[in-house]
Nucleic acid binder design. Sequence first.
DNA 1: ACGGTGACGAGAT
DNA 2: TATCTCGCCACCG
Length: 95
Amino acid sequence: MVRRIPPGRATTYGHIAALCGKPRGARAVGWALHALPDGSDVPWHRVVNKSGGISISKVGLPPELQRALLEAEGVEFEPDGRVDLKRWGWTGTDA
DNA sequence: ACGGTGACGAGAT
DNA sequence: TATCTCGCCACCG
């Protein structure tokens, strides 16, 4: 699911879960990404929380990393350090 | 088998 | 509008 998120776009855990048929399984999505192997081809950095913010610091990962990865794809961050999902959000309806 | 925890989300205050 | 609380699914002790 995460793999089909186009570059330069971002989506939420809940949305991924919904696309998987588990609208309430957002937390499980997070767990899945946390369990990803290092060399994985999954663009986990394109997944943010519903607020467009980064929560990876909870597992010890540097939020700056995810931010850098997204910015490298052209995604712009709000002054509050969050992504505007209304603009960069990917719903799956738009490839 | 039980209870606690964590890359989350929605409803209530 | 900002915070808090409760509910979700899966994993660990």
